[in-house]
Amino acid sequence: MNELIKNILKNPVFIIAKKEVMDTVRNLWIIFMTIIFAALTVAMSALGAYYFEGWQDLGMTIALMMGVVQLLVPIIALMLGYAAIVGEIAKGSMNMMISLPTSRLEIVFGKILGLGSVLSFTILVGFGSAGIVIGIMVPDVNYIQYLIFIGATMLVGLVYLNVAFFFSTLFKKRSTALGGAIFLWFFFNMILPVILTGIAFAGAAFSDIAAGNAPDWYYLVQLINPMSAYSALVTLNIGSISIATASTAPQLQYPSFYTSGLMVLILLIWIVGFSLLSYWRFSRKDI
């Protein structure tokens, strides 16, 4: 066992991941983002929603936090990933990294592992610490639901991280990669939902959707957006969301193929797919 641990610690993937963690954590903004997560969660719970008063339990807090998560998590992931490769190339440190006895595959997966760990840790500590505070203030808290929410948020964060990472292997300039990351954020949060609504209009399904009775194909198309898969994953597992949104919109009845397993699989396909694409692009790149 000790030998196995020693071998893991000596593996270039682990060494690169460790360096990424050290280098990123020393950037104070990631600590700042962790505090923001925790503060927002506690504040959401403490102040309550527009409809409720006083401390809300974890399930309700999740429902209230979903919108914030959908905006903030992609931003943090994109900021972490957009310069991962292009930044090092532009600076010159990638020359040195590749001259070391390591392969480009190890560099890509080491970096993804390191940045992914930082992102996951930020989400875990940010939401986790808030969860503990809420747990003290509110009786009978369902921690399992909250852990599912944290896990799902980590997964969707890793999706955006890997997409941004792929962009960082595509461009030659850091500024172009930053532009690409901003575009991605707009694309997933603004453009893609509009396109999907457009498809719904074109398919004459809008009235059905407004009535809470959308056809199956509409739900299938929605899954193109990883954020939809994330929302569905959280909604399928945490009942309180329906309570929070009940008074503002009719409830969507998910079709039977909408399962937690499928949603997790979709998010994993995004993660694995884009990390493989990153390796494919980086392995052909001249530095």
């Binding site: 280098d23 020393r26 950037n27 440190s93 020359n95 001259s99 070391l100 006895p101």
Partner: peptide, 26 residues
Amino acid sequence: FLPERVAFYDNLTALQNLHFYAEMKN
């Protein structure tokens, strides 16, 4: 290797930087 444009990880100290390369080179 000493490249023409020397670059390190700015947030790490000189020793932490060298430790990283030492680990990579075993």
